[in-house]
Amino acid sequence: MSLVVRGRAHAGAHTLEVELDVPAGVTVITGPSAAGKTLLLRAIAGLHPFAGMVTFDGADFRGLEPHARGLGYAPQEPAIWPHLSVSAHLTPFADAARIDELVRALDLASLLARRSDVLSGGERQRLSIARALARKPRLLLLDEPTGALDRATRERVGDLIKSDAAGATVLLVTHDLAEARRIGDTFASVESGRVTSRPRPVE
């Protein structure tokens, strides 16, 4: 299940040129701040205009609405719905057994009934990851999903992503090289507004 992205996206004066073949497994995307990593994920998700082609497992994403792309997406800011409980964040995406599995793995079980506007930063990030994983998507886009977590939790969540998304194609944006080495199968970087070539295997 490989993801192929070729083309360019514009955000103000910034242009991101992309020529990327992403194999199944976890591909870590790194690069300096404001290099265009978030823009790349948003373009693949269909949330930002992209001039070019995006195909996943042979399926052309052009003209497909974001909801029809079969993605899981955790944005850099967790984008938690403040009026809903933790539980209500997951019920539209998964059955009770799957929700139970995720909330146990992400230490959210005791928070299920809590309103999400009172969650801590770390709890919000874990909920965002649970929401992205809930449908067991074949393509997972994670934009610095563990930045607010402590080291131990980050490792545990990283392992969960790796095991839960086994067989899927995962694009993980991170500045944490230890995390990149720990769970990444391949590696690509965004520099000077360009993402090119096949991702290199993690060294």
Binding site: A45, L47, P66, H67, P75, S128, L141
Partner: peptide, 23 residues
């Protein structure tokens, strides 16, 4: 961003409207 994350995670327009936008 709250609407976009619903759409990108697979919710259709009407569901997103009922679950996120309207409330």
């Amino acid at each position: 961003a709250l609407v976009e994350v619903a759409r990108a995670n697979g919710l259709r327009g009407l569901t997103t409207f009922r679950l996120v936008t309207l409330p």
